[in-house]
Design a protein around this nucleic acid. Structure first.
Lengths: 106, 106
DNA sequence: TGAAGATTTGGCAGTTTAGCCAAATGCCCC
DNA sequence: GGGGCATTTGGCTAAACTGCCAAATCTTCA
């Protein structure tokens, strides 16, 4: 694999990695319903606000969400809807795993 | 977020995380063309075989690839084609990022 | 200007990853 | 059974990730 190819996969990995955390997947799922401010997400997830803020920064850095200040609050929203396709596929994989597990038990 | 919901997102994250590495993305891309043995992938990527083996173990563990022994070799193949959709979406995000970057420069 | 609330950033500790080498395992063939 | 190749696993180190607390920013409103 040459340097150019390597760079290509690294760029892709940066984006996938931004989704590779349960809290960030939850956030994406939630933002699919509409924009949310940091405090709302903090409330929903139930961890420190600084932690949520960092998760959001990662998603923003990857270009998956964008932010908009409104008063003292910062609202985040999805920038690219297709990330929701990830979920569909992830569900397929999980379904497939479950099915094979049945087979093993049978 | 209750325990059940948390478990749901953790399960999803396990799968996404399995894809969150440049080498593993390359492997998935390559396996989309057909099955490959560990030694072929090692040759293509250019890292230690033990490293490739571990990457493959992670993908297998997540249910994304499956293996089949043939003689002394172990051949890996995609188990769920839809993971390729990840790439499409990742490309969209990157395109979107590039476009915005243009805007910033303009 | 100053207090209060929302968010981000600095810093720290514990955990997980990634990669290499070496050793162990598995398979084929003589 | 033993040598040789393919693969996996154990062990180690360096780097990255997470989450919390505390401190710094930023915004509004009196």
């Amino acid at each position: 694999m040459d340097a150019k190819n390597r760079a290509k996969y690294e760029a892709r990995a940066r984006i996938v990695k931004a989704m590779a955390h349960p809290t960030r997947l939850f956030i994406v799922d939630e933002l699919a319903r509409g924009e949310r401010c940091v405090c709302e997400l903090t409330e929903m997830v139930g961890v420190d606000m600084s932690t949520i803020s960092r998760h959001l920064a990662m998603l923003k850095n990857a270009g998956i969400v964008e932010d908009r200040k409104r008063g003292a609050q910062v609202y985040y929203s999805l920038r690219v809807r297709c990330v929701l396709n990830f979920f569909e596929c992830v569900e397929s994989v999980m379904k497939c795993n479950a099915k094979d597990h049945q087979k093993v038990l049978a």
